[in-house]
Design a protein around this nucleic acid. Structure first.
Lengths: 248, 248
DNA sequence: GCGATAGTTATGCCCGACACAAATACAAGG
DNA sequence: CCTTGTATTTGTGTCGGGCATAACTATCGC
């Protein structure tokens, strides 16, 4: 694999290499799954030093374009995982102090549409997963921690049922950011009944293919949450915090 | 800056270093703007080799946690730019073959809420920018290319006017993905009048603080676009392509 | 044919070095 | 005293080469 590295270029060689490789991947010349040559090979074939190659590889690895399975040595071209990449937005968002309100508004935008879409597709498997989630919710009415987990899962399932990978990915970072405050809300308020009802109504509507209804209830559900946030006397305009085990 | 690197740890040293540094940054111990020690210093202070340090630094650089201005050598801790990071989702999305429909649905979720929010805030400066955009749109009615640019800008301005950084960032990658097909639509159809009308109605509604109306028109506008896509006999269920000059 | 063993890679890290751009200290000129 | 040109000192980009060890192969004996 010889790449054309221009020594006239003012860019550092390792960047040129990264760019060249990236292009080869994006253009499809190197397809996901393909084995990459060893570092030494890449180095000598291009007349550069191995450490230079390594630095370039690190970058592409971060972007998810290259990947090696845990513990193994062989390097492969890979298709970056959208959800994983999307989750990386959590850090920038928190560091830039996005407020709870901004986050809520975003989920308020995505989830109702997801519910709507889910009602249109009505996939059997997804519905089963949702039913199962509701069953477990009923069994956990007194366990706030578990309820929080189940609610997060519920919303994720809705996004899955919507069969829309873009929405699914984009909601991930916001969903993560929700976690901590949601926990507070559920622990200090007794909102489990309302939560369950809303979930049930949503699933019901999806089953009947009633998109408008599904959407409506999702909106109600989200509004409820916002009210809960206020009732728990948390500051809507305050910055979001790092979710406990975000990222790793 | 001494970090605790555990040689018992099975993780490669450069990863441990990256993790340790990242943590120091996330915890606020190292704040954005702080100058980082030189590579040589980091290396000797932690008893590791400089090349190892470099590899770790590359990773944090990719995540936007470290940064050095073009051509300079001083390394600073920095606050990752959410929008920039969000744009990185374009590659994974395209490589995973997300369809135009998924993208449309996502923007269909975000933009109406943005319009709604914009109507609530009604910021003077933002309104001025929107008016300006409309004026330029009127002047470009016969120039499809320009119209496309202006429309993209319009939607971005709405998101800005909504004053919601989360929505603003999340829409970026999808907005980018739209570009190519939008261009096709505008060139093959004569939709400029409808586009202008919608834009005007939306801005009007925002000015009056009529959130519902703003939202409604945004939805109409987006539906129109979808219809246009079909009329231009493009395949809604086909995969999105790389925007011409995405990323760079 | 199959499992165990003896190579052969390839990677993770390290040592040491050098050129050259950049940051900084310093000296001469206005 | 301040400005500006020049000499130093840093710090980075890259390179050469090296070693231990985990992975991967090929081979041998049963």
């Amino acid at each position: 694999m010889k790449l054309n590295l221009d020594s006239e270029d003012e860019l550092p060689v390792f960047r040129q290499l990264a760019k060249a490789l990236q292009q080869k991947i994006l253009s499809g010349e190197l397809q996901p799954g393909a084995r990459m040559p060893a570092e030494t090979v890449l180095a000598s074939e291009n007349g550069i030093h191995r450490s230079t190659v390594r630095e370039a590889i690190r970058a592409l690895e971060q972007q998810g374009l290259l990947h090696r399975e845990e513990g193994k040595r062989k390097l492969f071209v890979s298709r970056p995982n959208t959800e994983e990449m999307s989750r990386r937005l959590v850090t920038p968002m928190v560091m830039n102090g996005v407020t709870f309100e901004e986050i809520w508004e975003a989920i308020r935008a995505l989830d109702p549409v997801a519910a709507e879409a889910a009602a249109h597709r009505r996939d059997i498997d997804n519905l089963k997963a949702l039913d199962d989630n509701i069953a477990r919710t009923k069994a956990a009415m007194d366990d706030p921690d578990e309820l929080v987990k189940l609610d997060i899962e519920f919303h994720e399932l809705i996004a899955v049922a919507a069969n829309n990978r873009v929405i699914q990915s984009l909601r991930l970072p916001i969903s993560d950011l929700f976690y901590p405050s949601f926990q507070t809300v559920m622990t200090s308020l007794n909102a489990s009944e309302r939560l369950l009802t809303a979930h049930e109504k949503i699933v019901q509507a999806i089953k009947w293919g009633d998109a408008a209804e599904a959407k409506e209830w999702m909106i109600k559900h989200l509004n409820d949450f916002r009210k809960g946030y206020e009732l728990a006397s948390l500051d809507i305009t305050g910055p979001a915090e790092f979710p406990a085990k975000a990222g790793e």
